[in-house]
Nucleic acid binder design. Structure first.
Lengths: 353, 353
DNA sequence: TTGAAAGCGCTAACAG
DNA sequence: CTGTTAGCGCTTTCAA
């Protein structure tokens, strides 16, 4: 990057028209208000010990000049960046097409927009993870949020010892001291399963998610919990990988067992959609022959025929909560390591009696 | 050289364990390498005029100390922030569930991860637009990217005169000097329509998008262009609002006209999906009786039965291009105001012969 | 309650 | 090619 500046010193951002952009400084405000820079700084940071009179004068000057504090200067002086990093592992970014993730991010951004923090989005690919790590530890951010979709991958966990961090989704291994916000997968799954039972189904199967991912594990255990509470058989389990195809395959395997099945809980909507096709292939009906419930509440479920009963995740709130926890952490408040958000059962036609 | 740190001053981010986080400074690198701070700065900024020997020594010191430049200090001194704002109008954020948008953002982030720029995401609601504006103009960012989904809303356009800005999607009114990156809607639509014609269809209709949105307008004109090139009738036009329901309604109106129709181009996949249901309602088949083509390439089209022929948008590349244009603009290079990205026709079963 | 002064860590002329 | 010298705009003791 050649940093030579032509003699005319055209300020960056001056663009092609308009006069030189003049950004008012705290000093100018001080001059206009007839006080010292220190006082202006106090007003800007709402220090309690400033005369109301002075406060008003300063605010008026600020208004008049359209003054906005310069973040860089502020950071440098206060040794606080007011920046929060949003780390998105590239593998997650690929699944970006999952509306769930997008909504979580939106929740984070919206929460932060009411604070003085700014969101810095980093896509961290394999090749750049070291760069990301350095950036995080280089004093460029006050904290970080790591959204790793379903994987439970907390490879940045150890950084949590030196930088406030919050993870989305519970880690696979009990990472001891890391903070995370998660949805109550087990309770959600148990609720959906209970609903199946309450609607009269007695021969329940499940299409579980990968057993090396926390949501896969937890949703399966939720299913088991509901069944054991009712003393029902728990042997009808097949595992998929969260794709529709795997759901269809799992459903076929279940049907091939030749035992009666009148209800299925799939660990996500995609697999439930896959199950639909397998069920229809065999000439069976939904919910007539088999009731189906899913998890996630996305497009696959809502557009299916019949619409899928599923477990809705409060993705927006999840994001907001992650931001909230992180900010609390940064500000030195003590926070629970684990925050669990409740899910909501969406009853639709696929489980009608 | 007073680099002493008061014993009690606990650095922020010290978290609950681990020693005080010591972030190495350029000065420490200079000392270790036995050169001046200026030289270290030159090396860090890869200035060409430094002896290789010195460069190596400095880099070694950097490595040893795990030094990362402090962005705030750098910004303050260089009067460049190296930050790019991503402005997401909240209305767009609500449509966040559209994978298109998520992918565009990903493209932006990925492009920037290879540069020294950082992405700052701002959700700008009605109530906060003034805050956003101030933030942008307060010297906190070097430039901004505004992603306004389909609306063509360039309400931030006037800021472009003082801050480098790039918009996604062409503006509704010819905003004179604003920069934008868009997909070639007209060409894409013309291509899909041409494909319909080439596959033997002669009685073509279209379900156009809202005529107050650029994509709605451009896709309709693309359809017209293809028809006029073949001297076909252009009267079978109905307008929808990009929702499946509006697509179904529009299709019903078309069928109600009582004239022969053997092909339909819908301005997006959602409306095409709606058209499917209207067509099926009348007992007609796809593509047997009517061939259907859409635009966007999303879930609605790929999961439809039969899979929908549609126009794929290079969303990832679009994002990357937006970032590229903005960076060029910031660095004073001259760039075209309009950048149009090509689309790609995805031929699937809905237009089979 | 307010002001003066001393930096935060880095870049950018300007000498040498 | 390298070092010296000033700041960038703001916060923060420390006095007054």
């Amino acid at each position: 990057m050649t940093t030579e500046t032509p003699s005319s010193t055209s300020a960056p951002g001056e663009a092609e028209s308009g006069g030189p952009r003049v950004v008012p400084t705290l000093e100018m405000v001080a001059a206009l208000a007839g006080v010292s820079r220190a006082t202006v700084s106090r007003v800007v940071n709402s220090s309690p010990k400033v005369t109301q009179q002075v406060v008003d004068a300063v605010n008026e000057a600020i208004e008049k000049l359209n003054y906005v504090p310069n973040r860089a200067a502020r950071s440098l002086a206060s040794r606080r960046t007011q920046v929060i990093a949003l780390v998105v592992p590239e593998t997650t970014a690929k699944v970006f097409s999952d509306p769930f993730f997008a909504t979580v991010v939106q929740g984070i951004a919206l929460y932060l927009s009411d604070t003085d923090y700014t969101l810095n989005m980093l896509i961290s690919s394999e090749t750049k993870s070291e760069k990301t790590r350095r950036y995080l530890m280089g004093g460029n951010v006050d904290g970080a949020i790591v959204v790793s979709h379903h994987s439970g991958d907390h490879s940045y966990a150890h950084l949590g010892q030196s930088l406030p961090m919050v993870f989305g989704g519970r880690p696979l291994a009990a990472e001891g001291e890391s903070y995370f916000v998660d949805v109550d997968n087990a309770a959600g799954a148990a609720g959906a399963t209970a609903h199946l039972i309450e609607s009269g189904r007695r021969h329940l199967a499940t299409i579980a998610g990968p057993q090396d991912m926390p949501p896969g594990l937890d949703r399966l255990s939720g299913w088991r919990r509901a069944l054991s509470m009712h003393g029902l058989d728990q042997s009808l389990v097949e595992v998929g990988d969260f794709t529709p195809e795997s759901g269809a395959a799992a459903m076929r395997r279940l049907l091939d067992r030749g035992v009666p099945i009148d209800g299925v809980f799939a660990a996500n909507d995609q697999m439930a959609a896959g199950a639909y096709s397998a069920i229809y292939e065999r000439g069976l009906s939904i919910p007539g022959d088999i009731a189906v419930a899913g998890f996630d509440d996305n497009f696959y479920g809502s557009t299916a025929t019949p619409p899928l009963t599923t477990v809705h995740q409060p993705s927006h709130e999840l994001g907001a909560k992650m931001a909230e926890v992180l900010v609390a952490l940064i500000e030195g408040k003590s926070v629970e390591h684990v925050t669990t958000m409740p899910t909501q059962l969406l009853i639709r036609a696929s489980t009608a009696v």
